[in-house]
């Protein structure tokens, strides 16, 4: 099944960072949520988090707007 949340995180992260090849998303399934662990080059961390976390927050807002066919929440975790 296509994973729109993952696609969205990868698209936005790759568009923001300098090192697009270093962008990775690891998906962890839990009972009531799906966790997306995003990792980027350490030098690009600020670009995906943003000032006061605003970039990460905007991405989370889009994730919550996706709607979940399986009733699971999408949680974004940015690994540092």
């Amino acid at each position: 099944m296509e994973d729109r949340a993952r696609e969205l995180i990868e698209y936005v992260a790759r568009a923001l960072v300098d090192d697009a090849d270093a962008v990775e998303v690891n998906v962890v399934e839990a009972d009531r949520a799906t966790m997306y662990e995003l990792s980027v080059d350490p030098r690009d961390l600020g670009k995906v988090i943003g000032r006061d976390g605003r970039t990460a927050r905007a991405l989370r807002t889009l994730l919550s707007a996706l709607g979940s066919p399986n009733g699971k929440r999408a949680i974004l975790d940015i690994l540092d």
């Binding site: 936005v12 568009a15 923001l16 670009k47 943003g50 605003r54 970039t55 927050r57 905007a58 991405l59 807002t61 889009l62 707007a65």
Partner: peptide, 15 residues
């Protein structure tokens, strides 16, 4: 959603 789209879009194109 509109605000989040606008914010990310500006970050991306003004990178």
């Amino acid at each position: 959603t509109l605000d989040a789209l606008q914010f990310l879009l500006n970050r991306i194109v003004n990178r």
